[in-house]
Nucleic acid binder design. Structure first.
Lengths: 328, 328
DNA sequence: TATTAGCACTTGAAAATTAGTAGTGCTAAT
DNA sequence: ATTAGCACTACTAATTTTCAAGTGCTAATA
């Protein structure tokens, strides 16, 4: 456990470093406390001993270690009041009822991204209790048709499919079967229902049943897959830690790899969670702050990615605010 | 007009510079020609006089000027045979008939982007002679419904709209009217037909006709707007001309600004056009090679963006190949 | 016992110097 | 018309110098 003064010093160093990005020396700290720089140096040495601070070289000021950030986040940081101006801008987005939820999220995270110069991610998908409302087919020509799938929350997905040698009538039959038998089913159970309830039946009615089944199966599979939106990628270039091409290429490569992102960013926890450096799966150089959100329509993850030297309390407050606002 | 030897030298310098990215000296050239470096130097001086070459400093080798590239492109470059391996990879994409045209384009340009380390852009929109096939509404709850618009080529767009105090019956009436009166209309004439043929009529049937009209008007307006896809943005980071953060920020900022991109990239010419440096509206530092494509479903622009020191003949050949393949 | 003044020492960053090299233009000879 | 030869230029990379920021330790102090 840290003494009161050690806590103060650690906190000062971290907040200072967060905004200056330069190692913090004892002189700066001792002005804030009523003691000499020598005293501060002694304390700094202890904090370094504890693994909470680091030096960049023997005679440099101190920089927080990952453990230091972790301690700050767990014990020292106190939630910041949301700046009135920021709140106002966000509220304007939330109050625009024209916007669909996903757009609303993207817009507000874009705003946050611009305000903070971090990168945001919106990862969304149909909610688990989203139910199939209806499916519909529209023939285009003899071989091609559009399948449209609608959920009870108004999410629509469409796909153009090619079905050769299958009569429109057979397709309509299949569609009717689906509409009769599995409408109302939660979207992520549709695939199995399709397999166990529809597949055995259409064999009797439909000549090319294997092909038809596969087509619909594919449509639903695409439907339930997640979508991802990475917002304000360029803002991160303003961070001094991304000042060389190697790092930029590296992080941009990762941010652009949707599959990897979905795997690494998806969050199952409903609280705001903070993953510092090695704690996150995306990149050792960054911190990811994220949370799961869910509304009646939809659920997913919103995340902010920035350098470890991140304005933790501000980001947490902003994410909390967004989460609250979209969930109602 | 250049002498034969001047042409040779200019061409050698440009091709060499394109692949080395370093100023080209007289020694390198004289080995290719049967003459001394001094002779080459004299010729280089003339070419510089003509504005086709430049020096980076008094005693440096030569670098092509924009005018030099232009001369190369207009007079010196001869179309390259498409490399067998490249062609094979592209053909695999084109032969995958599962893919919709837009995806096919995006995939092949992604491939080109990875092969060349330039950035590609697919700018697409419904073709002018795309026709409205049908519209459809699906009610979600009392206030919300989904409008689905389908064209004869299988392009589908949907939008969730909120219509308070409007009965489902009234909406259905409007939909039927649209389906009766303007199905078959080219998509970019729909808006005006909506205004002059539907608007006057629904006033009689529908109580909140103003609101209903506006809703549908908005849906079609969204539908006909263009979409843009910038592919392989990160590859351009491998180009030595983008080796400082400023330039990266600058070009990425531009590439991310969709509106600006649509304005600056859209090409109306059916040939492959080359815009070098100041000739293009996107960025002085780059060259844009682009062409308009049109298939029966769709038309738009495909473009490649790279440094002025671009592998012109290769890119032209690749673009030509893609254009040919998608247009059939 | 905790704090602090003071000083020697370390290191990196920036500026200045040096050395080397790739290339030029010009002149005079072929 | 071409070319050998040479003086000259300016960049690049390496090295050195200078400077400031900051440390750790010791000894004095409250």
């Amino acid at each position: 456990m840290l003494t009161e003064r050690q806590s103060q010093i650690l906190k000062l160093i971290i907040t200072e470093y967060i905004q200056s990005a330069r190692p913090v020396g004892s002189n700066l700290i001792c002005k804030e406390l009523n003691c000499s720089s020598a005293t501060v140096r002694n304390e700094m040495a202890s904090l370094e001993e504890l693994g909470l601070l680091e030096k960049t070289h023997t005679s440099s000021g101190r920089v927080p270690s990952e453990k230091g950030y972790r301690y700050y986040v767990d014990h020292l940081m106190k939630p910041k009041e949301l700046n009135g101006e920021d709140m106002l801008k966000l509220q304007i987005i939330f109050n625009n009822h024209q916007l669909e939820l996903t757009d609303c999220l993207s817009e507000s995270l874009k705003l946050i991204s611009d305000m903070t110069n971090y990168t945001s991610i919106v990862l969304g998908g149909a909610s688990h209790d989203n139910k199939l409302k209806e499916i519909n087919v529209i023939p285009i020509d003899t071989d091609n048709l559009i399948v449209i799938v609608v959920t009870d929350t108004g999410h629509v997905e469409n796909k153009k499919v090619t079905l050769k040698n299958v009569s429109l009538e057979e397709i309509k039959k299949t569609v009717n079967l689906i509409n009769d038998l599995i409408v109302g089913t939660p979207i992520d159970e549709v695939s199995s229902k399709l397999e166990f309830e529809i597949k055995p039946i259409i064999g009797r009615y439909v000549k090319e049943h294997e092909m038809v089944y596969n087509t619909f199966y594919q449509v639903f599979k695409d439907f339930s897959s997640k979508n991802i939106n990475v917002v304000g990628k360029n803002n991160i270039l303003k961070q001094p830690e991304f000042n060389n091409i190697e790092k930029i290429r590296d992080i941009f490569g990762k941010l652009d790899n949707n599959e990897e992102m979905i795997n690494n960013i998806t969050e199952e926890n409903n609280d705001i969670k903070i993953y510092i450096g090695k704690e996150n799966k995306l990149d050792e150089e960054v911190t990811v702050i994220k949370t799961k959100y869910h509304t009646k329509d939809q659920e997913g993850t919103i995340a902010i990615v920035g350098p470890k030297r991140m304005d933790y309390d501000r980001v947490v407050t902003l994410l909390e605010f967004i989460k609250e606002n979209i969930e109602k």
